[in-house]
Design a protein around this nucleic acid. Structure first.
Lengths: 206, 206
DNA sequence: AAAATACTGTTATTTTTTTAACAGTGTTAA
DNA sequence: TTAACACTGTTAAAAAAATAACAGTATTTT
């Protein structure tokens, strides 16, 4: 399939989670405007996204919830799932691991890394924590393709460089430092200070 | 000034932090392409953003770092700063508070809320934690304008409704549940699962 | 059986954001 | 003193995303 727009992919992820929720309500089908209500967006946008992924519903009946969930899975997930590492086991790192533990998803956090020797060797939310030195070895051996950076800003740049050398494919950067990675690594910056300041601006006057 | 584009505001926040860093290197002036390098974006984009805020540099000298920092401050900050509350003192909530503690910024976290009675009454990263019941009172009394939601998904919707009733102006939602707020409340969704799944998609094949 | 209704899927339009093009200008170099 | 250079500021074009418009079609209503 042709590459989907960024924003569509984001929404697909959200559709899927909303649909899984909805499914537990027992209904088999759902209309575009119902999906839209779940996410507080418009029905057109939903239909357009579904058009882009080539999924087509039934007139007057809407979309088959299970089918749609499955289709989205085929788009986002790989057959065997992808492995994720978390680098930096501070509060943020543990929060991230907490989010995932217990959820059966095709993304599984399989390793954590930290410099603090008190943390290495322990298990957090079911995930073993290793020393940063072992990172390259373990990422290669385990076939980890995605890394989350949750170390303080000062260290983030070095961690990113090290990650790139391991052959990682994607990085989610929670640190406030902008990172620079080669084009074959997909980077998503995710800086909460920026977001808060943005809110501050838009809240300001009006 | 006319309302700035969303993305420009985000970058302004990043420019400012990068410039503060840069300033400690002792230099007084900076070229657009140098700012661009700091954030790994293009020089045109920097110049265009600065054009939008009406700040103009000097030919062959670039921009006055201090001046620019100040200008950005005038745009993003209010005169007396804005107060922020964090709702939900799990790992994520504490991570957010940790980020801010010690940093002297015009956004200050002044209250935390949680339902857990073991947490209320305590101080986290210098911020007092109150019971959720007290939220409306305290937000009004303190004049808190921005709230960060870091409670588990199930509770997020209710917390958001309660926040709207307090007259809050902006919300940063870390929970994976899409929220619905009236138009006078600025909402920024910030869901890490979506972001990870997005990375998973873009990393997938190629 | 004609008209209204309630949906989907698609194309067209608008808005937002990024990128490119380039005119203007003081500064250095020839 | 003219040409090349190294910048800024702005306008123009392109790309990405959201929104609107609407054609198509089963179903229900009249």
């Amino acid at each position: 399939m042709k590459k989907l727009p960024d924003k569509t992919v984001e929404r697909l992820s959200q559709y899927r989670r909303a649909l899984l929720d909805y499914l537990s309500g027992g209904k088999q089908h759902i209309f575009s405007h119902e999906i839209a209500n779940l996410l507080h967006i418009t029905a057109v946008q939903v239909r357009r996204d579904l058009m882009l992924i080539g999924y087509t519903g039934t007139l007057r009946q809407g979309y088959d919830v299970k089918e749609l969930i499955e289709i989205i899975g085929k788009i986002i997930d790989t057959r065997d799932g992808q492995k994720v590492a978390v680098v930096g086991i501070g509060n943020l790192g543990r929060a991230i691991m907490g989010y995932f533990s217990g959820k059966r998803t095709r993304l599984s956090i399989v390793a954590a890394f930290d410099v603090n020797p008190e943390k290495t060797g322990k298990i957090y939310a079911g995930v073993p924590c290793y020393n940063l030195d072992e990172m390259e070895d373990i990422i290669r051996r385990e076939g980890i393709s995605i890394a989350v950076i949750s170390v303080p800003g000062e260290e983030a740049v070095k961690v990113a460089e090290a990650l790139v050398l391991t052959g990682i494919r994607g990085i989610l950067n929670f640190s406030p430092k902008p990172l620079n990675v080669p084009p074959h690594v997909y980077l998503q910056e995710y800086d909460m200070i920026t977001m808060l300041e943005k809110i501050a601006y838009f809240v300001k006057k009006n």
